[in-house]
Amino acid sequence: MGFKLLSKLLVYLTASIMAIASPLAFSVDSSGEYPTVSEIPVGEVRLYQIADGVWSHIATQSFDGAVYPSNGLIVRDGDELLLIDTAWGAKNTAALLAEIEKQIGLPVTRAVSTHFHDDRVGGVDVLRAAGVATYASPSTRRLAEVEGNEIPTHSLEGLSSSGDAVRFGPVELFYPGAAHSTDNLIVYVPSASVLYGGCAIYELSRTSAGNVADADLAEWPTSIERIQQHYPEAQFVIPGHGLPGGLDLLKHTTNVVKAHTNRSVVE
């Protein structure tokens, strides 16, 4: 069995187990497998329904001669939608809004960016022009300005110390501490036991640490421990890039980060 097929099978099995364990909360999309990078042309966006009122959005972007996937989250909030992270750029984010209108038909009224990198804030200006209120932590807003990236308009308070959590509509926002970046936030959907790890969490097929220019490698494993301790009931975990899975993604990420750190020390 090929690795790609095995990865998709694991996603399907995880979703099936969740649907059985929580039949009222989960209505997993039966329309197909989780979209992969090879299936999404740059400039297009796919939506994948995880649970009743919960979707991931998947886009792709060219970077350094390669094409990478990027995940975000959409959560229903009454007759409105909360968006977590842009679709990595203005063109993708405009396509995301169009796809949401086509498939869901509810307005996106608020959006949260989970850290300051372009795959999370690139497209904020498109959201703002569409009347979406954009939010991020003060740290993310400051770092985005320093980096020359787009800056969300509103500040999220109460997320300055490791372990801080605040309720934001249908989700809980959690600051686990520094990891992929010093400002990275985690998003949890309690009604569906869905954990969105953003770039602080890796997919299972990833074996290298990737972009760690703004990471705190020493603190990252401790931050992941905080996530595990705060959300032990999480059933569906979405990484910032690639295929979702279960809580095993947290341990896998820790292993990859520690291996990278150990290699760096040896070198």
Results as ranks from 00 to 15, higher is better:
1 M>Y: 03
1 M>R: 05
3 F>T: 10
3 F>Y: 05
5 L>V: 06
5 L>N: 13
5 L>R: 09
6 L>W: 06
6 L>M: 07
8 K>Q: 06
8 K>I: 05
9 L>Q: 09
9 L>F: 11
14 T>L: 10
15 A>V: 10
17 I>Q: 05
18 M>Q: 05
19 A>F: 15
22 S>L: 13
24 L>S: 08
27 S>K: 07
27 S>N: 05
31 S>L: 10
31 S>Y: 05
33 E>A: 13
38 S>G: 09
38 S>I: 09
38 S>A: 12
39 E>T: 07
39 E>F: 10
43 G>S: 10
44 E>T: 12
45 V>S: 13
46 R>Q: 12
47 L>S: 02
49 Q>P: 12
49 Q>G: 12
49 Q>F: 10
51 A>M: 14
52 D>N: 14
52 D>L: 10
53 G>I: 12
54 V>A: 12
56 S>P: 05
59 A>K: 04
59 A>N: 10
61 Q>T: 09
62 S>K: 15
63 F>V: 11
63 F>N: 15
63 F>G: 11
68 Y>S: 12
68 Y>G: 05
72 G>I: 00
74 I>R: 02
74 I>P: 01
75 V>Y: 02
78 G>T: 14
79 D>P: 14
79 D>N: 06
81 L>H: 01
81 L>F: 01
81 L>K: 00
82 L>T: 11
83 L>I: 15
86 T>F: 00
86 T>Q: 01
87 A>D: 00
88 W>L: 00
97 L>T: 04
100 I>D: 02
104 I>V: 08
104 I>E: 00
108 V>E: 02
110 R>L: 11
110 R>M: 05
113 S>D: 04
114 T>Y: 00
115 H>E: 00
115 H>C: 00
117 H>W: 00
118 D>N: 05
120 R>M: 04
120 R>N: 13
121 V>I: 06
121 V>L: 05
121 V>D: 01
123 G>R: 03
124 V>D: 03
131 G>A: 12
135 Y>C: 03
139 S>W: 09
140 T>V: 03
140 T>D: 02
141 R>S: 11
142 R>V: 10
142 R>P: 02
142 R>E: 12
143 L>Y: 10
147 E>N: 08
147 E>F: 08
147 E>W: 12
150 E>M: 11
150 E>S: 12
152 P>Q: 02
153 T>K: 08
153 T>V: 11
154 H>A: 14
156 L>V: 13
157 E>R: 14
157 E>Q: 13
157 E>T: 11
157 E>D: 15
158 G>Y: 06
158 G>A: 15
158 G>D: 14
158 G>H: 15
160 S>W: 14
160 S>I: 12
160 S>K: 13
162 S>Y: 07
162 S>G: 10
165 A>F: 15
167 R>T: 06
172 E>C: 03
173 L>M: 07
178 A>Y: 06
179 A>K: 02
180 H>I: 00
180 H>S: 00
181 S>W: 02
182 T>Q: 07
186 I>P: 00
188 Y>D: 01
189 V>I: 06
190 P>E: 06
192 A>T: 08
192 A>L: 06
194 V>D: 01
195 L>G: 00
196 Y>A: 13
197 G>V: 07
199 C>L: 01
199 C>N: 01
201 I>V: 08
203 E>D: 04
204 L>P: 12
205 S>I: 11
214 D>Y: 13
215 A>H: 04
215 A>E: 05
219 E>H: 09
223 S>Y: 02
223 S>L: 03
224 I>H: 01
224 I>R: 01
226 R>G: 07
227 I>T: 14
230 H>D: 12
230 H>A: 13
231 Y>R: 02
232 P>D: 12
233 E>G: 12
234 A>V: 10
237 V>G: 01
237 V>E: 01
237 V>A: 05
238 I>W: 05
239 P>T: 06
239 P>H: 00
242 G>H: 04
248 D>I: 14
249 L>W: 01
250 L>C: 04
251 K>I: 05
253 T>W: 01
254 T>E: 12
256 V>G: 01
257 V>C: 09
258 K>E: 14
258 K>Q: 12
261 T>H: 15
262 N>E: 08
263 R>V: 10
264 S>W: 10
265 V>D: 08
